[in-house]
């Protein structure tokens, strides 16, 4: 809008170009490029959703690769998938779901302007995120000791798996597709793990900012957009867990 309405101009006049002055609308502060608090919130949310759209396709590339691979080599997927620890995967899913629940509560408290509760809930989330990565590290270490990390010095297809592949009539030149499961597994869980790690760092910064702004209460949008990112990371895991751990429990590999 090139011409401001008189009422609007008057509202802005008191604020000038100083973004750290309250707008007096009960929503904390409005940066000078925005008309009002709802527009500022909408812009923040749309910005995060745009980023998340690119993230969906970032993980989507790997998911598409997995779909093609699974279609091409169902036996190799099933045999390799059998090494994953369903119980640890389940515990980790619980950990992430609880953390998402805490973040949902933190967003509600942020809208109520309750800085202390937001910080407590975010610290809880960070603790759970660290637990997730810890459990993931235990799994990856076990994979390493089984020689299941592709291109590691001790990589080898377990002899039991070689027998099953041979029984199922898989030629030796198709054994590379067994290795591909582990390449995809470490890329998918690794990329997800990096996102968890980034989320932990961002939450630490957000918790500090919320505490810093506890008097101005200008933190609702900050907490909400960070929350969107964390829930997205949760959704990715909601799909990775069944795809990688669960759906081949009855396939060859017992």
């Amino acid at each position: 809008m090139s011409v401001e309405s008189p009422a609007h101009a008057a509202a802005h006049g008191a604020v000038g170009h100083e973004p750290s002055q309250p707008h007096g609308n009960g929503h904390g502060l409005v940066a000078h490029q925005f008309e009002d608090a709802p527009q500022q919130r909408e812009a923040a949310l749309l910005g995060m959703w745009s980023f998340l759209a690119t993230e969906v396709l970032f993980f989507g590339g790997l998911i598409t690769a997995y779909v093609v691979y699974r279609w091409k080599a169902p036996v190799q997927v099933a045999v390799a998938s059998h090494h994953l620890n369903v119980a640890l995967g389940c515990i980790n899913t619980c950990v992430l779901l609880v953390s998402s629940f805490l973040v949902a509560l933190a967003v509600a408290e942020a809208h109520r302007g309750n800085a202390r509760k937001v910080v407590q809930l975010l610290i809880g989330t960070i603790v759970l995120g660290v637990a997730f990565l810890g459990i993931k590290a235990v799994e990856w270490t076990a994979d390493y000791h089984e020689g299941l990390i592709p291109f590691a010095a001790n990589w080898q297809i377990p002899s039991h798996d070689l027998e099953i592949l041979a029984q199922r009539g898989i030629d030796a030149d198709q054994f590379g597709l067994y290795k591909l499961f582990w390449v995809l597994y470490f890329f998918m869980t690794g990329l997800h793990g990096i996102h968890v790690l980034v989320g932990l760092g961002v939450f630490a910064v957000v918790a500090a900012l919320v505490w810093q702004r506890r008097r101005s209460k200008n933190f609702a949008n900050l907490v909400e957009v960070t929350g969107l990112y964390w829930h997205f990371v949760d959704i990715v895991w909601v799909f990775l867990y069944p795809l990688l751990y669960l759906i081949d429990r009855h396939g060859p590999g017992h």
Binding site: E42, L46, W49, L52, A53, V56, L57, G60, G61
Partner: peptide
């Protein structure tokens, strides 16, 4: 926001 959030999944479906 509804459009922005579904667009991502629509494109994943197309891929």
């Amino acid at each position: 926001q509804w459009i922005f959030s579904s667009a991502a999944f629509l494109w994943l479906g197309i891929m």
